[in-house]
Structures are given as C-alpha cells and as structure tokens.
Simulated scan of single mutants.
Amino acid sequence: MHKRLFLLWLLVCGVAGPLLAQKPLEVIIVGTSHYNGSPDSSYRPIINKLKAYRPDIVFGEYLSAADAQQLPADQSVAVPFQRRMQYMKRRELTTAPLTPKAAASARRQLRKKPLLHRQRIDLARYYASTYDRGNAEYQLYLLEEPFKTSLSPADRAYYSQAFGPADSLRKTARLVRPLTEYHRIFFPLLHELGQDQIYPMDCQRYDQAWNKASGEAYTQFVALQAGFKKDSATAEAATFRRISTAKPAYFAYLNASNSDEEVYRAMNKPIFGTLSDNLNFFGDESLDGAVGFPTQAVRAMKAQWALRNQGMCDNIVRLARQQGATKVMVAVGSAHTMILQRLLTQMPNVHATTFDDLP
C-alpha cells in the first residue's frame, strides 16, 4: 500500500495518533546551577554548545500555568505566585491584561516584527497575570537585555507603568533574576534559536509530603549533631562523621573545575549524581540503618523525590509529543540530572543523554 494511503487508512481507523505519537524522542538534560555569577563571556561556550544541538523546544524547571493556579494556598511553593499576583495588581497600568486570543495574536506579530515593544510588554504582562512564570521571565529578559537599547522613551514609560521600577521587578516580584541559569544561558539560547517560548516541566504535587519527610529527617540530623558535640566517641557520633563527609566531597569535586563550562560538564556526570544524593539525603543509602541515622525519614524523602522526578518526566514526554518535537532540551537543577536520565530512559521510545555527552 502507498505510504500516504496507508497513513490515511490509519487515520480513518483511528490508530494513527497512538502510532505517530510514539516516534523516537531525543532528550538532552542540562543539569544546572541555580546561581551563575560569572561574567557573560564565561557562559558563551555553554550557549554555543547547546545551540549547536538545535533542540526543537526547550523545557525549564517551571510549573505550568494550570498547575501553578491549582496550588493549595497554604503550600510553600504557592507563596511566590501569590506575592507576584499582588505585585501586579498594584501597578499603575490598570487596563485588563490580554485575552488568550489577543496574546496568541501578539506572539504572531512579534515573530514577524520583534521590535514591537508595547506588544511584548503586554505579552509579558499576560504571562505574569496567568501564572506562566517561565514565559513572563523570558519576555522580560528580552526587554531587559537584547532589546533594551531600542525601547523609546514612550516604551520605557509604558514598561514602568506595567511592571514598576526595575529594582522592585527584581527584588519584590522576582520576575527578573539576572543570576539564574535562565537569564544567563537559556533565555539567550532561545533568543538566538528564534524560539519564542520556554516549556514547563516541573511537578509539585508531592511538595507537602516532601516537606514533612525532609523536616523529620533534618530534626533527627540536628539531634545527631547535638549528640556528637556532647560525646564524639559514640556509635551515633560515627554516623554523624560519615554524614559530615558529604558536603566537603561535593564542593571539592566542583572546585576542581577551571571554567564554568567544566563546572557544567562536571554537574552532568554520574559521579555528581552520587555526590548530590549524599549531600541532599544525609549520606543516602550507604548509611541506611546506621545507628542514629534517620533511615525511615530519608526513605520517605526519596520516595517523594522519585515521584516528583517521574512527574517531571511525564510532563516532558507529554508536552514534547503534543508539540511534535523529536529533539528537546531540559534545563533543570543538577540534583535532578541522573534520576531524570534514568527515568526517561525507561520510557518507551525515549533516549536521554546529558550535557556532558555533547561533543
């Protein structure tokens, strides 16, 4: 049967969608630091390497607008969203934000004419008002960096009315964060690739259970530390000493790198996954069952951690399939790198590598 006729037959029979949705998906995971304080030139080799990969779409460690809107008000991760919404309501510009239809129109206009600054300001305001933090930040980056010098006095006045003074936008709303991996690496990358969106992939459905487990583990760790200070010769003290080796080992590994590109490579190697788990889980599985070690609390932490990372993987694959992407890039805190790679590799027709695997 001719290929086109075969595809038409599949569509008529209702089976083409599932088959086509399972085409191979290539995922490159870029484990990042959330603090990037070096000069811009230090990150240029990283950007160039990522740009050469040419992903179809880029994901960031952001919640989707829908997930952010559904966060329980008393959940800790909801507080920054509530603060930003209150901040936006106090702005001088009181006209209603764009509708979804008008926002889609603004995106189309900006693809053709990127210097329509008022439309970009309106689009950034739309994203901020609809809980889409990632894309609000991206549009504000464009206004603050590559397009800043081309804003007219009228554009700058409108920008200030919509978002307030630059200092408040950074320190109060925290919608411009110049030292994050997004502002230093991934927003420049998106701009140079000509992509107008960053896609969300975070999952915070397990945040409350995680906080409960991590709080219990930390309380037991503090008790272990206090016991060590009283008597360093006990079995509990020996456990505390073993826990205490995790932090210096973690930073000694990173400090052995001579450039930011080397640091990023180091953060995307399997050994760093082990060092990171040792630091974040009080020594991790090697101390499971040791005298005084918060075994049950750490196991509960790891269970919630696994659920969150699986949720991230599900979001990545679902959205990539929806967008018809075959090559995607995922920017995520470096502690997630190895578990994401492992979980993604277990999913059908998904191949996952890391920044360290790039040539």
Rank of each mutant, 00 (worst) to 15 (best):
A300V: 05
R299Q: 14
N280T: 09
N258K: 15
Q304C: 03
T295Y: 10
S286R: 14
D284G: 09
A246K: 02
C313E: 00
A303T: 10
Y253N: 03
I316V: 13
S286G: 10
L287Q: 05
L319W: 01
A300H: 12
L287G: 06
E261G: 07
G273Y: 03
L307K: 13
P270R: 02
I271Y: 09
T295K: 04
N315G: 04
S257A: 15
A249G: 06
T295P: 09
N309A: 01
P270S: 02
Q323V: 03
T274K: 13
Y250M: 09
T274Q: 14
D260Q: 15
P248E: 07
G289S: 02
T274W: 10
G311L: 00
S259T: 12
F251E: 13
F293A: 05
R265S: 08
D314K: 01
D277S: 10
R308E: 02
K302S: 01
L279S: 06
L279W: 06
Y264N: 09
R318Y: 09
N268E: 10
N315W: 00
N315S: 06
R321A: 00
A256C: 06
P294C: 09
L275I: 04
P270Q: 05
L254G: 07
G273A: 05
F272E: 04
K269H: 14
R265W: 13
R299I: 09
A266F: 06
Y250N: 08
D277N: 12
A320M: 00
S259M: 08
A300E: 14
N315L: 04
S286Y: 12
S244Y: 09
N280F: 15
N309G: 04
A300M: 10
T295M: 12
I316M: 02
A320P: 00
D288K: 12
E285D: 13
G292H: 06
F272C: 05
R308K: 04
S286Q: 15
V298M: 02
I316D: 00
G289R: 01
M267A: 08
R299A: 13
V291A: 14
T274S: 11
V263T: 12
D277K: 09
Q304K: 06
A246E: 08
A303V: 07
Q322C: 04
E285K: 14
F282R: 04
V263D: 03
Q310W: 12
M312Q: 02
Y264G: 03
N280C: 11
A306K: 12
F281W: 05
F251W: 15
R318W: 07
A300D: 15
G283M: 04
L254P: 06
M301A: 05
L319D: 03
A320G: 00
N280S: 13
F272A: 03
A256V: 05
F251Q: 11
R318N: 09
D288S: 13
M301E: 08
V317N: 00
N268C: 10
V263L: 13
F272S: 04
F251C: 07
N255D: 15
K302M: 11
N309W: 00
Y250L: 12
V263I: 12
F282I: 08
K247V: 15
L287S: 05
R318T: 11
S286V: 12
N309Q: 05
A300N: 14
A266C: 07
Y264D: 06
M312N: 01
L275W: 01
V298G: 01
R321G: 00
F272N: 06
